[in-house]
Every structure is written in C-alpha cells, then in structure tokens.
Design a protein around this nucleic acid. Structure first.
Lengths: 301, 301
DNA sequence: ATCGAGGATGTAGCGTTGCTTCATGGACGT
DNA sequence: ACGTCCATGAAGCAACGCTACATCCTCGAT
C-alpha cells in the first residue's frame, strides 16, 4: 500500500479522471494508471471502472480513497510532530482567492505573515464555479472560496474554516432615484436592469431568491463575474447589481443600499484538504487569515 | 516520509537498537541505519543519539515514532477497507502464548478458527520476562501474555484485550496436611518450601504479596517457569507452589486450595500492535480467542 | 458512416531508489 | 591492550517507478 498511490487515488477521485489527476500530480497519465493498477492488484478488488471514455471509482475504490485521507492526515501529523522541534516553522504556502476576496484579504494577510518570518506565501487568484472550488485544493494549499447563503460544501474529505459572512447590498448609480434610500425592498426593483454573475458561480442564486420575494423574474442584461467591473457598469448607469458590502471598492459613482425583508449574503471560507490542514506552516497562515478576516469584517461595519 | 522508514523507527524504539530491529524486519543493520539517516534528513532534526555503543531516540524521534503508530494504523485501516469487499477474509495470523496459556487456549482456538475457513493460524510458544512481552508484538501478530494482579502494560502504542482473570491457588501434595482444607490463609504457609517462577517473570511478584500478608519471607527452594514441571515437583513433595486454577493440568498427586484473605491472581491478555489489530483477519482471530477464553474460564469454574 | 479528438491503458527503456556486502570507527568487557 | 559488539559509511547491484510511445475505445463532428 504505497502512500503515493493512495494519494493518487484520491486525486483521481477529486479531479474526476486520470489525465486531470496526472496534471495536478505532475505525472504522466500512464504513471497514474499504473499506480491504480498496482493498487488494485494489491487490494484484490477493482478500484475503478470505465464509464464512457473516462472512469469512475467503484465502491471499494471510494472506500479506499476515504481511508487514504486518514493516511495522508496521519503522515502530515508525523511531519508536524517533527516541525515542532525545529526552531521556527519554514516553508511556502500556496493561497488562492476569488477576486473580491483576494483584494480584501490578501494584502493584509501578506503583511501579517511577513511578521512571523520564515513563511513564504504564494498567492493566486482563482475564480471558478461553485462546484469547482473543492478540486482547487489539490493544486493550492488554502483556497479562499465563497458560497451563497444556504449552500454547503461537500463534506467528503474537505476541511472548511469560516472566514466571514458578508451581506449583499443593492448597488445603484449615485443619481438613481433609490440612491437616497436607507433600505430597499424587493418590490422596488421590479423595473430594473440587472448585472448578474455567470451561472453556476457563487451568489448567482441569491439574485433569484431576491426576485422570488417580489414575484417577478429579474431582467438580467449583463453577466459579469468581477465585482469591480460590475461596479463600473453600475456607475455608468447600465443597470443595478447585488454587490458584497465589505468588498465594494467604494466607487464614487455607486451607492450600496441594504435590502429590506430578504436576507441576502454570502459566506467566505477557507478550504483545505485535511492533510494539508495539518501542516504547521499552513496552520500558521490559516490563523493569520482568520485574524485578517475578522479585522476586515469588523472594520468595515 | 516513507512509511517503511517510519515503521523502522518504531521497531528500533521497541527493540531497543538497530541490530535487533534489523533482525525483526529481515534487513541488515546498514539498511536500518540508512533509513534512519534518510528520515532524519527529511525531518531536519536528529531522531537518534548515540549512548554507549547503542543508541536511543531523541525527543523528536520519540514524537515521530508516536506519530508513526497512527500512520501504520491508518494504512492498515485502508487495507481493511478493501478486505471488506473481498468475499472472504484470507491470510495467516501468527499467535504466540506462554506455556500454560498456550495449552489452555490454543487447541480450541485452532478448531474454532478452522470453522471460519481461509484463515491460517501459526502458533508459537514464547515465555519471556514480563517487560519483554510487548516487544514480541513486532514478531508475532497476537501475543497471549500474562501479568500479575496490579501490574499494567505500558500504554505506549500497544493494544491490550483482556482474555481472562485466573486466581492463583496454593498447590500442595495430595498427602499434605493442608490438602484437605477448603481454604488456606497466608499464615498457614510460613514453614513451607516454595517453588517459584524466575525473577522478572509474570506472577513472580504475587508470592511476595502473599508472604507480606503473613509477615515472613518465603523460603524459595526452586525457580521453575513451566507450571507443569512445578506441578510435578509439588506432587513429588519438593515444596508447595502458587499455580493458576484453570491451567493446572489436574495432576493426580496435587491439590489446589484457594487462598483466604489475599487476592492472588493473574490476568491473561492479548497484546497487539495497534496497526496489526486493524487487520481484518487478526480481528477475526482475536474474536475467536476472546470467545475461547470466555469458555475456558466458565467451564473450569 | 467516417474521421478526428480525447481519454485510459499497455510495453519498452531508462533513471533512481534502496538493499546487501564489505570496511571503518567507537565503546564496553575481559 | 585486545577482542567483541554495535552503529555507520562507501561501492555495487537489483528492482521499482517513471517517461515515451503505441494501441484501443468512445464520443462528437462532418
């Protein structure tokens, strides 16, 4: 039972195929396939089965992949047990975040981690569909992800740490009739043009929930994922939008007005594989990230 | 962090040296040494330190060895997760027992396991000093061991399953003045010659506890570890002894009389490494062993 | 239907890893 | 002071695992 092969099995499951797993593991598809074959030989049962031109794990493969998570966690705990005796935790941690989260959290995270010394943080911005966030944890140590109110991450083999909850406000142009209001109710927005995010992406469902409260379907004229672009469009009078309260860059031409009646918001979490979550340096960075998120949501309201 | 190397580290600790560990692992001392060196390089700290002509684990090494137990357990759990999907558990399990325990438990164990089919049990008899029982678990899957009342096995990385508790009775010759009694108190035995077990071996301390109750030091004339030999000596009138109630072969020339006042007894347990305890076949054998032990202690009183 | 693309899996060859053998250097007991 | 025991290095060899290449299969396109 090679630990590397178990790792590979997990990756094949999370990435959904041999080729994708091979890319993540920096291997050729052939190597991955051979590892699976060897593992299956050792286990005495088939771990994968062909489906179409891809493959999927059998029940046995799924069970073994679950067990493989515990193996990886135990190995990382062993590593951490040694790191304790090192004078100071060293290493590099890869952190990714979606755009608005990145702008809010990454700068203060980097300065805070810098004070610890010895830990290098490599950042990247990754904006993917809601369902694709978990798979990022194979490539990146800490994934800052967001989800609309009500949605939950799949529990299987994923460590989730809540960073902050952020209300979604209605963004209207500065000169809009509603701009002076303290609160806006869903019914006030029936005649507006909407700038929404792409389908399948986080908070896409929230607009639907708001519209449901007023009973009319929203008129979506643009689909923009980057909130700062959406903000610019709103300022230019091309529609209204739902934008997160803390992240809104404070564009001078835009006013954010809270929604009345509907509870609209998103949650920002840190996602990690259970084994990477055990790494000492990762835990240090995560602690810093939690602190930074707390400051951010306190400071801005 | 190679799993094999972690395994090696554990063995070096439990066996107390590179050479002994190498023997258990079927390797050369050089290979063991190289694995330790590679592990230490990877961990970044020294795991062992020379002491005299041997070596001992450092604090970091000890911590890593502890973590290695969890790794081994996780790996075996993974194996077991696959075995569940196999039609029927197969494999061989090595069981060892001290003499009297072996005679009592091994025959019914073998017949019981035979009914399961597919599992081979390899038996051996190992009589060692009390402190040496745990180290046997590196060589043998299930170690049937015994300990005097009050003694405990070291908790570190050892799974203990209680099999039975057995009172120790006073064995006297058939024609001895005390042979007719229902109970014997400690004071009645002040003038007897004793046949004890070797120092450091299980139940050696019990005789001391009995003597303490009467206030006089026991006159030990022979030290015999094998209870059936001790029994023969008692029958021939060479002294009295403390013998386990269930295991006593029922030698016609010997009477076992319970002790009054003092609680004298020994406990028989199954000892396993935590990782081997996870193996499915081992668990089957262990279940059988527990059942056999229950029958034995019920049947014989 | 035919063809091409994408995906998984075998085969040959090569590099790396990890073992054994042999030799060296301390530490203890006689 | 010598021999023994134990751990550790260096050299050589075998085995394992990866890459590269080829094959088979499935699906979507023309």
């Amino acid at each position: 039972m090679d630990v590397r092969a178990l790792e590979t099995l997990r990756t094949v499951r999370s990435q959904g195929g041999v080729a994708a797993a091979a890319a993540v593991l920096h291997l050729t598809p052939s190597a991955v396939s051979q590892q699976l074959a060897s593992l299956s030989r050792e286990a005495g049962v088939a771990l994968t089965e062909r489906v179409g031109r891809g493959l999927r794990l059998t029940a046995a493969g799924d069970a073994l992949a679950d067990a493989a998570v515990d193996v990886a966690v135990a190995v990382e705990r062993a590593r951490a047990a040694c790191s304790v005796f090192l004078d100071r935790p060293e290493g590099t941690v890869r952190v990714s975040a979606f755009q608005s989260g990145a702008r809010l959290l990454l700068p203060p995270l980097l300065t805070r981690v810098a004070t610890l010394g010895g830990i290098t943080v490599e950042c990247s911005d990754e904006d993917v569909a809601l369902d694709d966030f978990p798979a990022l944890t194979d490539r990146v140590d800490v994934v800052v992800a967001h989800r609309p109110d009500g949605a939950q991450w799949p529990a299987s083999g994923l460590r989730v740490v809540l960073l902050l909850r952020e209300p979604l406000d209605v963004a209207v142009p500065r000169d809009h009739p509603l701009a002076g209001r303290d609160r806006i109710s869903a019914g006030d927005l029936d005649d507006e043009d909407w700038i929404a995010v792409r389908e399948g992406f986080p908070v896409a469902t929230v607009l639907g929930a708001v519209a449901a409260a007023s009973g009319t379907a929203p008129r979506i004229v643009h689909r923009i994922n980057d909130f700062s672009i959406a903000e610019a469009l709103v300022a230019a009078g091309h529609g209204v939008s739902l934008l997160p309260r803390f992240t809104g860059g404070g564009h001078p031409g835009v006013r954010l007005v809270p929604l009345a009646g509907v509870r609209a918001g998103r949650t920002v979490d840190a996602l990690m594989r259970p084994d990477t979550a055990e790494r000492l340096v990762v835990r240090r960075v995560l602690d810093a990230l939690v602190a930074v998120a707390a400051e951010a949501s306190n400071a801005e309201r």
